[in-house]
């Protein structure tokens, strides 16, 4: 009966997320966990200076190669204060946008699932960095962020606590949030 309720509520709500497809996928993958093994890829080529261009195309999942009908291109560079030409955002800014994109997608999907109509979702992110780390000035300073702050401004047909719960649940189920908050083994090889 709980199910019937949430589905009938959800039917009136449209955040552009196909929740029933996601739920079906979840159900199917519970029966076949091997199909849940995905591989994500990116290829990057140096352009000049600190400017590089990444191509993002196929990935592996559901037991097969998944090709897209296009290849996305993403450029990275560094700003002029780093004596670079500022052709594109810095990789750390791209990382912040990755976190924002992941959390925002989660908010939309969870809102749909919970029958909450969204009107607007805006996130602003800021991260602290002491660049004495990357410049090798002080070994006690880490290269990466000291802290990341994310602020969400959400308009939705829901109480403040229900909106906060969307954002909290989105963090709980976010891949990028997990990647940033927990260690990951990184293996780099050279030909």
């Amino acid at each position: 009966m709980t199910n019937t309720n949430s589905i009938s509520t959800a039917a009136k709500v449209d955040n552009g997320v196909n929740v029933s497809a996601l739920l079906q996928a979840r159900e199917a993958l519970q029966q076949a966990p091997e199909a849940a093994q995905f591989k994500w890829r990116a290829a990057c080529e140096w352009v000049s200076g600190t400017h590089s261009r990444s191509a993002i195309g196929s990935f592996f999942g559901l037991g097969a190669e998944q090709s897209r009908n296009k290849t996305f291109s993403l450029e990275a560079d560094h700003p002029q204060v780093f004596a670079a030409e500022d052709h594109a955002p810095t990789p750390v800014e791209i990382l912040l946008s990755g976190l924002a994109g992941c959390l925002t997608a989660g908010v939309a999907a969870i809102a749909q699932r919970r029958g909450i109509q969204l009107h607007s979702v805006k996130a602003s992110l800021e991260a602290d960095m002491d660049i004495q780390g990357i410049l090798g000035i002080d070994d006690d300073v880490r290269n990466g962020f000291g802290a990341i702050r994310v602020h969400f401004d959400i308009r939705a047909d829901a109480s403040d606590d229900d909106i906060k719960a969307l954002v909290a649940q989105s963090q709980k189920r976010s891949a990028v949030f997990d990647i940033i908050t927990n260690p990951t083994n990184v293996f780099v090889t050279v030909n």
Binding site: K172, D178, P183
Partner: peptide
């Protein structure tokens, strides 16, 4: 935060503590 690594005499913790607390409060 949650223990996510243990080695070389060091323990590492997740940066998700604030959210786990927010979830529990809600």
């Amino acid at each position: 935060g949650r223990l996510v690594g243990l080695g070389d005499g060091k323990a590492q913790f997740s940066g998700s503590l604030a959210n786990n607390c927010a979830l529990a409060d809600l």
